[in-house]
Simulated assay, not measured.
Amino acid sequence: MRFSETPLAGAFLIEPEPIADPRGFFARTVDREAFAAHGLDADFVQASVSFNARAGTLRGLHFQRAPHAEDKLVRVTAGAILDVIVDMRPRSPTRWRWHAQPLDAASRAALYVPKGFAHGFVTLVDETEILYQMTTPYVPGAGAGLRWDDPMLAIEWPIRTPILSESDEAWPLLVPGAFDDEDAFP
C-alpha cells in the first residue's frame, strides 16, 4: 500500500499495490501495522455501504462529536465520487480548510479521514457505491454536519444543484467561533 498525506495533516490517500498474475490481481487494502507506521488507527469496528442511484447526489458534510468521533476509511466499490473533507480540529493549523479527492472503483484507492474532520461526497456517475469502515460505531445523537454550500468554507463542488437529503439541506451556516469547544474533537 502507498500512503500519501493530503494537504490536511492526518488525512491520507491510500492506494493498493496490486500483485498481478493471469487470473487478475491481489492487493492489501488494510494492514494494521502499515497504518500504525503512519499514525493511523486501523481498528475498524463497523462498516457501511452507501448506494447512490444518480450522479449529482451529495451526502455530507457529516461527523460525530466526541466522545464518539470516528476515523473513517472511504473507498468507492462502484462508480466515482469527489470526496471532500474539512478539518474542524480547534488547534489545527489547517482548521476550516478543505480537501477534495476524486475516488473511483477503478483505482481502488481509499481516503483515510481522521477524527475531527467533516466528510462528504458528490457522485460523479449513476449507480455509485461507497464502502465506509469506521473506528467507532455510529451513534445517532452524536451525528452532526456542516452545510455543503457554506460560504465560510467555499468548497468548489463540481455541481450547483445537487440531489440532497432534507437534513443535509438544513445544517446551519458556520459563524465565527463555531465548534470552538475543545472537548468536541480530539
Rank of each mutant, 00 (worst) to 15 (best):
M1L: 13
M1A: 02
R2G: 11
F3L: 14
E5I: 13
T6R: 08
P7D: 12
P7G: 13
P7K: 14
L8M: 06
A9Y: 00
G10Y: 00
I14A: 03
I14S: 03
E15Y: 06
E15L: 07
P16Q: 11
P16H: 02
E17Q: 03
I19W: 09
I19T: 03
A20Y: 05
A20Q: 07
A20G: 01
D21V: 12
P22W: 08
R23V: 13
G24I: 08
G24V: 12
F26N: 12
A27P: 07
R28W: 09
V30A: 09
E33T: 09
E33G: 06
A34Y: 05
F35S: 04
A36M: 02
A37L: 11
G39T: 05
L40P: 04
L40C: 09
L40V: 00
F44I: 07
F44C: 03
S48H: 02
V49M: 10
F51I: 11
A53G: 13
G56C: 13
G56N: 09
R59A: 13
G60T: 11
H62E: 05
H62I: 08
H62V: 08
Q64M: 10
Q64N: 01
Q64H: 00
R65T: 08
A66R: 01
E70D: 12
D71F: 03
D71A: 15
K72T: 02
R75V: 02
T77S: 15
G79E: 03
A80M: 14
D83F: 09
V86H: 00
R89K: 08
S92C: 12
P93N: 14
T94N: 14
W96I: 13
W98F: 11
H99M: 15
H99A: 15
A100Y: 02
Q101I: 05
L103F: 02
L103D: 04
L103S: 01
D104T: 05
A106D: 06
S107P: 04
A109P: 02
A110E: 08
L111T: 02
Y112L: 14
V113A: 15
K115T: 06
K115M: 05
K115L: 02
F117M: 14
F121V: 11
V122W: 02
T123Y: 03
V125P: 03
V125S: 11
D126R: 07
E127F: 04
E129V: 00
E129W: 05
I130W: 04
L131F: 09
L131S: 05
Y132F: 07
Y132K: 00
Y132P: 06
P137Y: 06
P137H: 04
P137M: 03
Y138H: 14
V139H: 09
G141R: 07
A142P: 01
A142V: 08
G143E: 15
G143I: 06
G145L: 11
G145E: 00
G145Y: 04
R147L: 15
W148T: 11
M152D: 08
M152H: 04
W157H: 01
I159E: 10
R160S: 15
T161C: 14
P162V: 04
S165V: 07
S167D: 10
D168N: 06
D168V: 08
A170T: 02
L173Q: 10
L173D: 06
L173M: 12
V175K: 11
P176T: 03
A178L: 09
F179R: 12
D181C: 13
E182I: 07
D183E: 11
A184K: 05
A184N: 08
F185R: 04
